[in-house]
Design a protein around this nucleic acid. Structure first.
Length: 583
RNA sequence: GCGCCGGUAGCUCAGCUGGAUAGAGCACCAGGCUUCGAACCUGGGGGUCGGGGGUUCGAAUCCCUCCCGGCGCGCCA
């Protein structure tokens, strides 16, 4: 509901509650019982429902319905704000807003235009959203795709609520995984030259299987846990084409790793670009080493007696921070585990003056963030400013069968592959349709559905395109679109028109709620509701033809069309989905 | 075994932080419309909200407990 309407109702009801409770002799201004004003779910229950009588019943020792009756008397018409009131159910007070108030809502939507839905509930906070953050060891999988869309939509929502947002991608390029990548490429390179034998295919498929060091007199160079995807062979092939045999003696962490990282990262950025996702900052682990940030954190943790040596490794004294167990932060090999750079990285986030930090991560990281958060807190930063949005995994279903996504094996579907099938708009919409903490089953059959009455993404886009269709038709007839101020919205008095206006007016609240809860799916569901009201409305050209001989009515309905367009366009923009003018 | 997340219509999922008769899409059934304002619409069937306790005027929502599924519990990231 609109902020202005909400606060007016609240003021009015506060007074009515006070008057009634004073009459009962049980008003204590210092100890008020909170009550709710809710948007009614059904039109039969008015526009708003108030539960004040129910929550005050105990204190007043009166039945809720009796109190509600007194409230209704005290409310009256509330100085023209309210058209009708009633006592209902166990003691709700249902309120019907004066229609003129709703008509004002449409005018405001049209005047606000592209800005409608924006607010300042984010209070200008400087916030960093870190997402994707996939290490460049292979193409983006569906899980990364969900992460990417989720993070980007959260960023868009925060921007719409007045935050200053930095989108950031962090990757670990210093550790074992990248070394493994280099080794994998070199092994394939040697295989192409006939200097090494590939491991048996069956052994690769089984994570517990071992293979002999030699096959047919050739060494098997491919590392255990190596990266098996075809892209590794392609990188090796292009190295062979470019450099011939001269790399045979090179370190895997030299040209092989470098070439692989560049190649894979280029692919990742291409996929993100196709999704309309851009980052403001890329940061990486090696950078932190070069700047001495890792050593610094280690030194500071030691100074706080939060790090100690045992079994040849360095441990974080996490139990002293209230966690279940201690954790290794520097391995006995001298190499830090990923958690140490992570601590350093998060400390740098605050030093870079972000007021809030949001990390979007897959469920497999769920156990690690408490350590980072606790360590950063111990280093003097407010841990409540670090937020984690943990999302569950993605499965892909088609023809009734569900395909589980697995990295490092050949059983994953990449973002690129899926984009070729469904395009970025459908991809994004489907990825954002579920709340983060729920598993997401990507219904490939529905996503590919070209009978677009069935595909929810197209249904939404079509609802938007229809507002342009009507405008085109109007222009054909030589009629200009009305100016916002010139519309007599009181002509829109059919129930479905008022319902549409009411729902359109809630858009800013939906955006605010989605932003604050970091749950973009609320926007997707809301837009489907709008489309579900608008499509049938346009459909029923007998009951309410938009273009008619009644000029004032025509202008009012064109105004309604423009209002729908504003909300759908603004909402789709928040989801990063295009709002086409025709389909 | 421990921790986190899920369990709502045949399927995939919403449910505004405790409100009234639990919703949507897909699928299914019956009908409408022969079209870019039908890429849609109308109507219908379908539910012990995983089970059991508790809190209260009122529970899908909060608490306890059990069952099922996913993920994690590395000197991997």
């Amino acid at each position: 509901m609109s902020e202005a309407i909400e606060s007016q109702l609240r003021t009015m009801l506060d007074r009515a509650v006070r008057d009634v409770m004073e009459a009962y002799g049980c008003w204590d201004a210092g100890d008020r019982v909170p009550y709710a004003i809710e948007v009614s779910r059904s039109p039969e229950h008015g526009d708003f429902a108030c539960n004040a009588a129910l929550v005050w019943a105990r204190r007043a020792r009166r039945s809720p319905r009796e109190i509600a009756t007194r409230l209704v008397e005290a409310i009256g018409d509330a100085g023209g704000l309210v058209q009708r009131t009633e006592v209902a159910g166990p003691g709700f007070v249902n309120l019907w807003l004066a229609r003129a108030r709703w008509h004002g809502v449409l005018t405001r939507i049209l005047e606000t235009g592209a800005e409608f839905g924006r607010s300042d509930v984010g209070k200008g906070e400087r916030v960093q959203v870190e997402f994707v953050s996939a290490n460049p060891t292979g193409p983006l999988t569906l899980g990364h795709g969900r992460n990417a869309v989720l993070g980007d939509c959260i960023a868009r929502l925060l921007e719409a609520t007045g935050c200053h947002v930095t989108r950031e991608y962090y990757f670990n390029d210093g550790g074992r995984q990248m070394r493994l990548l280099g080794e994998s490429v070199k092994a394939r390179y040697l295989e192409l030259l006939g200097l090494a034998a590939p491991p048996p295919a069956g052994a690769l498929a089984d994570p517990d299987a071992a293979w002999p060091p030699e096959i047919d007199g050739l060494p098997v160079a491919f590392p255990r846990d190596g990266y098996q995807g075809d892209y590794i062979r392609e990188i090796a092939r292009s190295l062979l084409d470019a450099r011939g045999r001269e790399l045979v003696g090179e370190d895997p962490e030299g040209p092989f790793k470098t070439a692989a990282e560049q190649s894979v990262f280029a692919e990742i950025r291409r996929a993100l670009d196709a999704l309309g996702i851009r980052f403001d900052v890329y940061s990486n682990e090696l950078m932190l080493y070069q700047q001495g940030k890792i050593d610094e954190v280690l030194k500071d943790l030691r100074a706080l007696d939060l790090a100690y040596e045992a079994d040849g490794a360095t441990w974080l004294r996490a139990q002293a921070l209230g966690l279940a167990r201690d954790r290794v932060i520097v391995k006995s090999s001298g190499e830090p585990t990923y958690i140490l750079p992570d601590i350093a990285y998060h400390r740098e986030k605050f030093r870079r003056d972000f007021e809030r930090v949001i990390d979007v991560q897959g469920a497999d990281h769920i156990d690690t963030f408490p350590f980072v958060r606790a360590a950063v807190a111990a280093l003097g930063h407010d841990p409540s400013r670090i937020e984690y949005v943990i999302h569950q995994f993605v499965t892909l279903s088609s023809g009734g069968a569900s395909v589980k996504q697995s990295t490092r094996r050949a059983t994953y579907v990449t973002v690129d592959e899926l984009l070729e099938e469904v395009g970025p708009d459908v991809f994004r919409f489907f990825m954002i349709q579920r709340k983060p903490e729920a598993h997401l089953d990507f219904d490939l059959d529905l996503a590919k559905e070209q009978d677009w009455t069935k595909n929810p993404a197209y249904y939404l886009q079509y609802a938007h395109a229809r507002t342009h269709g009507i405008e085109r038709k109007a222009r054909e007839r030589g009629r200009a679109m009305p100016q916002p101020g010139a519309i007599d919205a009181s002509r829109l008095d059919l129930p479905e028109e008022l319902e549409l206006i009411k729902r359109l007016g809630q858009f800013p609240d939906v955006v605010a709620r989605a932003a604050e809860s970091r749950e973009p799916h609320h926007v997707a569901y809301y837009l489907q509701e709008i489309a579900g009201l608008w499509n049938p409305y346009v459909q029923d050209g007998v009951r309410h033809r938009v273009l008619s001989d009644d000029e004032a009515l025509t202008d009012a309905r064109l105004g309604l069309a423009l209002g729908v367009r504003v909300v759908l366009a603004n909402g789709l923009r928040l989801l990063g989905v295009h709002a086409p003018e025709r389909m």
